[in-house]
Each structure stands twice: as structure tokens, then as C-alpha cells.
């Protein structure tokens, strides 16, 4: 475009900003571009006006490439609009249409400006269409990026949520595992557990696998590794919550769990942990009277668990 005449897009944007806005609004409201139930007309008008203003500023430079710093603000605006629309429930197509619908008003003005000058008109139409296409594509890109950010955040949340290490008693940690264990998750689980062992100085960790649906050789190996690592640091691991099927699977697979203390339920594991740390649990509440109403068994248990404390020997 060495000897090409200067593009008149900037000039048109300058002169007819108000008219363009009016036409564009009409275009969007009559067309199906904006689901009016999702956003108010005034909000749309604000967005359009801001878009036009920034476009006018930006197009003072070159309108064909959008690399200059004068385009940054417009890109930011598009990013914001896309973000807010994505939250409001717009589809990417609808968001892109916001930009594309500006074509017609702009083209109309260009045609008026050029009149019979076919060469100039076609050149500027091409410029305008490239510009708006690029801007439209940007909105799709931002939309996509927003979605990806959400997915990444959720993945991280899931990872964190699924591996809580609970300080169940003084010196006893519990790690209730829920869901399938893959290598990556096991890594996180192992690191979390070991870090908590260091932080709390706990000598016993109970790994409860009630929530693990399938135990295969890989999962078993991961568990054994965790147990071995904890042992190296000076903490003992107890594996609890082994369901009957899982016990069968483990034996059929030939996994050797001889060096690991295993218990069927978490409460068994906890009582072993109490024994080793020197605590005893006993039923108390003999002095408390059992209320007359209600089934006796249930009430008795409740009283016991409330009053019956754990004492240090």
C-alpha cells in the first residue's frame, strides 16, 4: 500500500460518531444480535459508545494493523465486555456479533463518503472489514481464554479439595482419600501429608481409602510409596477403610502389604493410634442421669461420647 490513498475510516469515525452509534444501536436492537433479556439497552449503549470512542482514538494511527500501543485500550475494553458477557450467559457467537454488527453502519457511511469512487470504496471496505474481523476474533479469543482460566482454577480447586490432611488428634493425622488416585494426585497427596507431618510433628498418619473406588497395582504402589516416605521421616502410617472387595483385589494382585499396618475401619485405626501415643478412651458419664424419654441406648451413647473424655496416661 505504498501509493494507496489515505484511508478515510478515521475521518468517518470522527465526523459521524453520533450517527454511527445510532445506526449501530438500531442494527443490534432490530437484529437478533442482542438477547435483550440478558442486558439492558442503556448498558449496551454505553458499551457501544465507549467502543466507538476508543476505536476513533485508535484509528488515528494505522487502521490496518492493530499492533500499536494505541490499540491497547480498545483491546482491554473488548476483554472486559467479553468477560462480562460471558458471565451474563452470552455465547461466543453473540459476543462476536456485537463487533460484526458494526460493519453495516460503517459500510453505509463509507459508501456515502466515496460516492462513485469504486477503487477507493473497495479499498476502504477491505480495510474496515479486516479491522472488524480482527476485533471480532479477539472477542472469541478472550471468551476462550476466560473459559480456560475457569477450568484451570477448578482443576486446582479440585486438587486441593480432594486431599485434605486432618489433624484428628494431638500427634495423629488422618488423610481421607476420595476418588481415583492417579500419579499426579498421589504426588500432591504425598507432598501434603509429608509436609503436614513435618509441620505438626505427628508420629502417626492414618490413610483412609474408604472413598477410593478402585485399587489396582498402581494405586497400591502409590500408597506403599507414601507409607515408605512417611516412615523415612519418622512417622508411621496406618491404612484403613479397606472394603472387602478391595482386600480381595489386593490379594489377587499379589500386592505385599505385610510391612504396613492395615485396618478395616477408621475407628480401628484410631484406637491403634491412641494406643501407640499413650491415650486411652473410656466411656464416662456414669454420674450423669439418663433422661427418661427417648430410647435408652441412643441416649446412653450420646452421653458417653460427650462426657467420656480421652485422658492422658
Amino acid at each position: 500500500m505504498t501509493a494507496a490513498p489515505k484511508s478515510r475510516i478515521a475521518e468517518i469515525l470522527n465526523h459521524y460518531e453520533g450517527d454511527l452509534l445510532k445506526d449501530w444501536m438500531k442494527q443490534q436492537l432490530t437484529g437478533k444480535a442482542v438477547p435483550t433479556d440478558l442486558m439492558k439497552e442503556s448498558e449496551l449503549r454505553d458499551q457501544c459508545a465507549e467502543f466507538l470512542r476508543l476505536l476513533r482514538e485508535a484509528s488515528r494511527g494505522s487502521v490496518t494493523d492493530m499492533v500499536g500501543s494505541e490499540w491497547t485500550e480498545l483491546k482491554n475494553l473488548l476483554s472486559d465486555i467479553t468477560g462480562s458477557r460471558a458471565r451474563q450467559g452470552f455465547t461466543p457467537a453473540e459476543t462476536a456479533t456485537f463487533v460484526f454488527s458494526f460493519k453495516q453502519p460503517l459500510f453505509d457511511r463509507l459508501r456515502q463518503a466515496y460516492g462513485k469512487d469504486a477503487d477507493g470504496l473497495s479499498m476502504d471496505l477491505w480495510n474496515a472489514t479486516t479491522l472488524l474481523d480482527n476485533l471480532g476474533l479477539l472477542t472469541t479469543e478472550y471468551h476462550q481464554k476466560g473459559r480456560e482460566d475457569v477450568i484451570v482454577r477448578q482443576q486446582r480447586d479440585l486438587m486441593e479439595l480432594s486431599t485434605p490432611v486432618v489433624n484428628i488428634w494431638d500427634g495423629v493425622l488422618a488423610l481421607p482419600l476420595i476418588g481415583t488416585l492417579d500419579s499426579e494426585r498421589t504426588q500432591v497427596v504425598m507432598q501434603n501429608l509429608l509436609q503436614r507431618i513435618v509441620d505438626t510433628g505427628s508420629a502417626i498418619a492414618i490413610i483412609d481409602i474408604t472413598g477410593v473406588p478402585i485399587v489396582d497395582t498402581l494405586v497400591a504402589q502409590h500408597l506403599l510409596k507414601t507409607v515408605a516416605a512417611a516412615r523415612l521421616m519418622g512417622a508411621d502410617c496406618i491404612i484403613s477403610g479397606i472394603r472387602p472387595q478391595i482386600a480381595q483385589t489386593i490379594v489377587h494382585l499379589g500386592v505385599d502389604l505385610k510391612d504396613v499396618v492395615t485396618k478395616a475401619t477408621l475407628s480401628d485405626a484410631l484406637s491403634i493410634a491412641f494406643q501407640r501415643t499413650g491415650y486411652t478412651v473410656r466411656k464416662g458419664g456414669r454420674s450423669e442421669s439418663v433422661s427418661s424419654n427417648g430410647t435408652e441406648d441412643g441416649v446412653q451413647t450420646k452421653v458417653a461420647s460427650r462426657a467420656g473424655g480421652t485422658q492422658h496416661l
Binding site: 509429608l194 513435618v198 515408605a228 516416605a229 523415612l232 519418622g234
Partner: peptide, 15 residues
């Protein structure tokens, strides 16, 4: 008795 092994070290040794 070996004391105070860091988690990263324990993991490395197991691996």
C-alpha cells in the same frame, strides 16, 4: 536413628 528428614528427601529416596 535418622531424624528430621525433609519431605522432598523422603520422596526422592522412595523414588
Amino acid at each position: 536413628v535418622v531424624v528430621g528428614m525433609q519431605p522432598a528427601v523422603a520422596i526422592t529416596l522412595v523414588e
